[in-house]
Amino acid sequence: MVASLDLAALLGQAVIPAAVLGLAALGELLVERSGRINLGLEGMLHISYGAAAAVSIATGSMAVGFLAGLAAALLLAAIYFFTVEVLGVNQAVIGLSLVFLGSGVGVILGNLGGGAAGPALGITTARVVAAVLLVATTLGLYLFLQRSWVGYVVRSLGENEKAASMMGVDVRIVRAAMLALQAVLVAAAASLFLYGYTSGRWTAGRITGQGWLALGMVILGFWHPLGVAIASYLLGLLYSVQSLLPSLLPPGAVYAVLVDAAPYIAVIAAMAIASIIYRKTGHRPPASIWQA
């Protein structure tokens, strides 16, 4: 059957976009569970993508490229930490500034690569790497956040910072650690995007929107690693169907608009539906980042 073959292909195709979104979202999940929102996620992805491209093209090594992407993401995490945790600047101000700082510098860095093609993963390898990374990170974070006592430490900060610090949680160290872990996952997402999705070739703005969508995945996955992974995979599926949309839908010009905007419209709608479901079922997200 052609249809079933197509389905299998689609499921496979979805893995890479799902892993890119999922890794970025899982990093944000850690930060949000510790009671902060890093709106700068989009910028982190941009700068990591640009740095990884420039360095992997220059050195020919994907590993070194990844490390460069990690260094760039860590730089933004450090700025966030110093301004928000140490100085006490509003986290939304810094987060949004980091979006522009990260995407601005990301393009400058990416341009250093001169548009050449860098090293890349083969399509099969890329899918295997993506699947392994996503599954391993999801399970790892599940065990860490929900099953280990350090996970309780992190979550206690997201629920009640004052109580946590009275119990002896060193707020700054935990937040710094979560931001650093976020940088690692963002670098992994950006590298996967570069080596597995865009065949080692950097294009300005190619990664646009991934960070914002990942922020949405955290909400849709209800701040739980498994939920975030599932939400990311579903959106990954939408991405792999996206190119087929025009042929699937009855002819008509309006649909052309919907194709580009489909992931965003879908996520807005899903967030609205999810919030109704959460309210009906009495679920509460981490207290410190809930605003009703």
Binding site: W149, Y152, V153, R155, S156, E159, N160, K162, A163, A164, M166, M167, G168, V169, R284, P286, A287
Partner: peptide, 26 residues
């Protein structure tokens, strides 16, 4: 150990989870 006037526990956790957390941190 301080027992503050307004109890400082993590609302979303159970009592045992709070105790486990406090003990680990100590």
């Amino acid at each position: 150990a301080l027992v503050p006037q307004n109890p400082m526990l993590v609302d979303a956790f159970t009592v045992a989870e709070n105790v486990m957390l406090a003990a680990r941190l100590a």
